[in-house]
Design a binder for these strands. Structure first.
Lengths: 105, 105
DNA sequence: CTCAAGGTACGGATTGTATCATACCTTCTG
DNA sequence: CAGAAGGTATGATACAATCCGTACCTTGAG
């Protein structure tokens, strides 16, 4: 883990990633990033999740510490990007499953 | 859902499967079944999980209701089998990830 | 400098999950 | 029939996860 809480590629574990993806809100974030063009950057708030700011921070921390996303300091805000390459090497096929999920009724 | 709590193939959802696999004990069960020969049948108790019988029933219920395993009534006991075909069609690649997981230190 | 925007940290309420002990049911075996 | 083996149901407990409000920090814009 670097000082900002990002695990290195070899530190990404299936357990942590599955736990992170078990939550529907977090899965939705990953789904949107996985469907977006490679390298897409989004702010936490841009996803329009129906929770408070504090809860948002909580969810993005779990996504970051599991290795699913990278959060880059942009001064004013923090840009979230999907760790596509790392994940495709470490857990191939997983992002495709999340990206292909059909939204709940 | 049939009367024994098995979802049909089209009722298997990514969310339920990921939640089931988020637990290390349940993931271990799926891992052992995924590594075993196709069609392998195991009883709940045969996995040697370090929990009580009641907890065992709880975990196998979640595995069954998520669609990961099928439990067949064998009179004396219930045989658990992996729903390999259904899962490979519905969530291709997922079982491979679980089967390939390297055990925790 | 001041302020709004984007995030984080903290404390607390609520809910969910994992766990167990106990009691009970069913089926095979002797 | 009696017992053992494999599971299930129920109720209780302990822990973890989710969520919020509030307070606070940092940065960029005016």
């Amino acid at each position: 883990m670097d000082h900002e809480g990002h695990p290195a590629e070899h530190e990404i574990t299936l357990g942590a990633v599955l736990s992170a993806l078990a939550d529907p809100l977090r899965r939705r974030v990953v789904m949107e990033l996985a469907r977006a063009p490679i390298g897409t950057e989004r702010t936490c708030a841009s996803f329009g999740l129906p929770v408070s700011k504090a809860t948002l921070t909580h969810h993005f921390r779990i996504l970051r510490e599991s290795g699913l996303i990278r959060q880059i300091d942009r001064g004013n805000s923090r840009a979230a990007t999907l760790r596509r390459d790392d994940l495709d090497r470490r857990l191939p096929g997983l992002l495709d499953l999340v990206a292909a999920e059909t939204p709940a009724p």
